[in-house]
């Protein structure tokens, strides 16, 4: 089987293989339609979601050296476009949020531009590049907002050192249309609404709900370490979250992600420290 796959890889162009793989998910998309959240709140309906379940913001520009470059501008445009498509989406109880089914295919025809993306473990240029910042944010919001993540793909690289990181390493999710998706279920008995937008150079995301939650969530990491794999540095950790009831009693403590990524910087002094939650 592996030899057939290897032969197909060498003969069939990458773009054709990619489209075949995308088509393979088509029938699944058709039958699962009733379970997917697709309604967006009208502007006057947004006031019905006054309670904040989770909020996070992340800077659009991480490396000042990239300011004003084509890739950075493309990324900012793509993030604004994707967050606009997600803003106001209502996820009813027990429905599934799917990143790709909401944002759709990132094509030039739909207004996406070239941006920085990671492909096969290497930084590269691609249409819709940079949208992972949106999916990273959604994954973190889902963890903190009490959503149940049913599909998530981790990044294979750790791009930046921790000095400006406010969340544990590995609290992100990569997406690639349409087979590497980020999906979460709303397990709560009331609907929630996603609110995303760009403000003052930051991507700001919220999950809001109709009713106040009777629990709090704490996201934390365990077993964080750097290790050597040949010449490369590898970073590993496990992300967990803990739910507490109103009286502080632990309702559930669960592992939500197990990360392992190649480090693209010299870990230096960061080798022994994990980032705070």
């Amino acid at each position: 089987m592996n030899s057939i796959r290897g032969w197909a890889r060498s003969v069939v162009p990458f773009a054709v293989r990619l489209e075949c793989r995308r088509l393979a998910r088509g029938p699944e998309w058709v039958v699962e339609t009733p379970t997917i959240a697709k309604v967006r709140a009208k502007p006057r309906e947004r006031a019905r979601y006054p309670h904040l379940l989770a909020r996070h913001r992340s800077p659009l520009l991480r490396d000042p050296a990239l300011a004003g470059t084509g890739l950075q501008r493309g990324k900012e445009h793509n993030v604004a476009l994707a967050s606009g498509l997600l803003d106001g989406l209502i996820v009813p109880p027990n429905r599934i949020f799917s990143y790709h089914r909401t944002v759709g295919r990132p094509s030039r025809f739909r207004g996406f531009r070239d941006g920085l993306e990671l492909h096969a473990g290497k930084p590269s240029r691609g249409v819709g590049g940079g949208c992972c910042q949106v999916s990273n944010m959604l994954f973190l919001l889902a963890l903190r907002g009490g959503m149940k993540v049913v599909e998530r793909h981790r990044h294979g690289l750790d791009l930046f050192p921790d000095h400006e990181r406010t969340i544990p390493f590995g609290c992100g999710a990569t997406v690639y249309y349409n087979f590497a998706d980020l999906r979460f279920e709303n397990p709560l008995p009331f609907p929630v609404m996603l609110a995303l937008g760009i403000r003052d150079g930051f991507l700001v995301g919220e999950i809001r709900s109709e009713s106040a939650p009777e629990w709090t969530v704490e996201v934390y990491e365990m077993d964080h370490r750097f290790s050597r794999d040949g010449d490369a540095w590898i970073r590993e950790n496990r992300i967990r979250r803990r739910f507490r009831g109103a009286d502080g009693e632990i309702l559930l403590d669960q592992e939500v992600a197990c990360n392992r990524g190649r480090v693209l910087y010299d870990p230096g002094e960061d080798q022994t420290c994990g980032a705070p939650s």
């Binding site: 739910f243 009693e249 309702l251 559930l252 669960q254």
Partner: peptide, 11 residues
């Protein structure tokens, strides 16, 4: 009730 509430997040 509290115990069951916590189970909604079990995978």
């Amino acid at each position: 009730r509290r115990r069951v509430e916590g189970l909604r997040w079990c995978m």
